[in-house]
Design a protein around this nucleic acid. Structure first.
Lengths: 135, 135
DNA sequence: GTAATTCCCTACCAAGTTGATAGACTTAAA
DNA sequence: TTTAAGTCTATCAACTTGGTAGGGAATTAC
């Protein structure tokens, strides 16, 4: 399951996508409209900034805004950044791979099945962007 | 990601599937062959028994064994029992549904996307059984 | 009927994660 | 130079995860 943090991140990104190229948006505005705890949201947005998804401006008239075209930010990317691996097993993850102890990947039935599940999920998540999320 | 507990559960079930209808198998044998901490495995097997997947016999010659034909035990069922929801959001889960606060499911882009991901995963996990896992 | 074997049960624990809050600090605009 | 923002550090309670300990209860063999 996606953590609450991830769900908040998506709500905030949806809000910012709706306001793409309309100037900075206050954290407090996002928090209020999307009903997200203010200080928690601060952390999330800061993290998304450090990872290059968002950019910000300080001082009066400041706020957060998308660093790139929302049509170019994949949902899969956001999930990996905020939530972690998409795959159900470490030995099957593309971005967080760790090999199995005591289990030969080549003849592990679970491994093969989880590769299928991963690919089925990615066929959707790699082909949807922030733009698809917003109104 | 599947918890270690889930991964242990699958390893143990795979072992028991290979020995289906060959009499009870000792916890200690499974623990040794699959390299699972003994006491932790005890808990897991007991849980699987309470949920009707396994059955057991006490005393000499006792042990654990599958309660039903492994070809009839879906992988999705095991994941739900041991690991929890398969869906990425509570508002999208078939077996662990909880409605979204502050979010209209009918026009939530994330909701719709996560329904797709859930169905893609289930198309695999509901159609594979313990038999498919084993050799 | 009693000893050995095996699962069953209750309790506990350390470490990590999650969700959240508090407060001071820095930058930039007016 | 004041004020309005975002930024940073730190702390916290509650929960989950992975694992351990030790005895109790049922069954079998003798």
């Amino acid at each position: 399951m996606l953590s609450k943090k991830s769900q908040y991140a998506f709500k905030a990104l949806e809000y910012l996508t709706d306001r793409y190229k309309q100037g900075p948006v206050l954290i407090s505005e996002i928090a209020k409209k999307k009903k997200i705890p203010l200080k928690f949201l601060e952390n999330i947005l800061l993290e998304l900034k450090k990872e290059g998804i968002l950019d910000s401006k300080k001082g009066k008239g400041g706020g957060y805004f998308l660093a790139k075209d929302p049509a170019r930010v994949k949902v899969a990317t956001i999930i990996r950044l905020v939530n972690g691996p998409i795959a159900m097993l470490p030995c099957v993850s593309l971005y967080f791979y760790e090999r199995c102890k005591n289990c030969d990947e080549k003849k592990c039935g679970l491994h093969d099945m989880m590769v299928e599940v991963r690919d089925a999920s990615l066929s959707i998540l790699e082909n949807r962007t922030l733009k698809d999320l917003a109104g």
